Computed example of a mutant assay.
Amino acid sequence: MPLKIYLSGEIHTDWRERIIAGAEGLDVSFDSPVTDHAASDDCGVAILGAESDKFWHDHKGAKLNAIRTRRGIEAADVVVVRFGEKYKQWNAAFDAGYAAALGKSLIVLHGADHQHALKEVDAAALAVAETPEQVVQILTYVLTGALPG
């Protein structure tokens, strides 16, 4: 049975693709939120009807996205949460907290410039990586016991 990995967080870089490509050959499966920004933002109104108030527009979308996110995190063995450089990812912080509350194995991925801001999130994680390649090395080690090299 493959190790189920949920890839949460920023959607503006290729970090997911790098992890998936690097993990080729490992007994893993991946899931993630919808990474099409427009689809994610507009799913609620596209399915449930238009809203004139932006708050309710976003509220509908957030609730529909939460169905997918909760399912993915709950089904995962490992949750990887990426915090990017450009945007504040409040949803990523929420996903990390949810995964930690469920007792999921949590890997946090961010650059050194986020160390102070994410110190509480990092403290809940079992590993804090700076690159997608380090995440792949963690997964390889967990599944095979092999060190990089």
Results as ranks from 00 to 15, higher is better:
residue 115 Q to T: 08
residue 117 A to W: 06
residue 130 E to N: 13
residue 57 H to I: 00
residue 122 D to I: 02
residue 134 Q to C: 04
residue 124 A to T: 03
residue 98 Y to W: 05
residue 41 D to F: 06
residue 138 I to P: 06
residue 116 H to M: 04
residue 75 A to N: 10
residue 90 W to C: 00
residue 90 W to Y: 07
residue 102 L to K: 12
residue 39 A to F: 04
residue 36 D to E: 08
residue 93 A to R: 12
residue 69 T to P: 01
residue 113 D to L: 05
residue 98 Y to K: 02
residue 34 V to A: 05
residue 32 S to Q: 12
residue 116 H to R: 06
residue 120 E to Q: 14
residue 132 P to W: 01
residue 118 L to S: 09
residue 56 W to D: 14
residue 69 T to K: 05
residue 91 N to L: 00
residue 35 T to R: 14
residue 130 E to A: 14
residue 109 L to N: 14
residue 78 V to E: 06
residue 135 V to R: 03
residue 58 D to S: 10
residue 55 F to V: 13
residue 112 A to H: 13
residue 100 A to N: 04
residue 117 A to Y: 11
residue 54 K to L: 08
residue 138 I to T: 04
residue 43 C to W: 00
residue 55 F to Y: 15
residue 133 E to Y: 05
residue 133 E to N: 10
residue 95 D to E: 15
residue 139 L to Y: 04
residue 56 W to K: 05
residue 77 D to K: 01
residue 95 D to Y: 03
residue 108 V to F: 02
residue 142 V to H: 13
residue 94 F to P: 03
residue 97 G to V: 03
residue 59 H to Q: 12
residue 86 K to T: 13
residue 32 S to H: 09
residue 137 Q to R: 09
residue 121 V to A: 11
residue 114 H to N: 08
residue 129 A to T: 09
residue 101 A to Q: 15
residue 63 K to N: 14
residue 77 D to L: 01
residue 118 L to N: 07
residue 71 R to K: 15
residue 138 I to K: 08
residue 126 L to V: 08
residue 42 D to A: 08
residue 32 S to T: 11
residue 77 D to F: 01
residue 141 Y to M: 04
residue 107 I to K: 06
residue 40 S to H: 04
residue 73 I to R: 04
residue 74 E to M: 06
residue 52 S to C: 01
residue 46 A to I: 03
residue 117 A to D: 15
residue 54 K to S: 10
residue 51 E to F: 00
residue 97 G to N: 15
residue 92 A to N: 08
residue 56 W to T: 05
residue 76 A to D: 10
residue 50 A to R: 10
residue 124 A to V: 00
residue 34 V to Q: 11
residue 80 V to H: 06
residue 114 H to Y: 02
residue 67 I to P: 01
residue 45 V to L: 02
residue 122 D to K: 09
residue 61 G to C: 02
residue 103 G to C: 01
residue 106 L to K: 08
residue 122 D to Y: 02
residue 57 H to F: 05
residue 45 V to G: 01
residue 62 A to R: 02
residue 57 H to V: 00
residue 34 V to W: 03
residue 35 T to E: 13
residue 139 L to K: 05
residue 111 G to V: 00
residue 57 H to Y: 07
residue 75 A to S: 09
residue 40 S to W: 04
residue 105 S to Y: 12
residue 112 A to P: 12
residue 115 Q to K: 11
residue 109 L to P: 13
residue 135 V to L: 03
residue 83 F to E: 09
residue 107 I to H: 12
residue 141 Y to G: 07
residue 137 Q to Y: 10
residue 135 V to Q: 05
residue 86 K to L: 12
residue 118 L to D: 11
residue 118 L to H: 11
residue 62 A to Q: 01
residue 62 A to Y: 03
residue 47 I to F: 04
residue 94 F to H: 13
residue 86 K to C: 05
residue 136 V to Y: 12
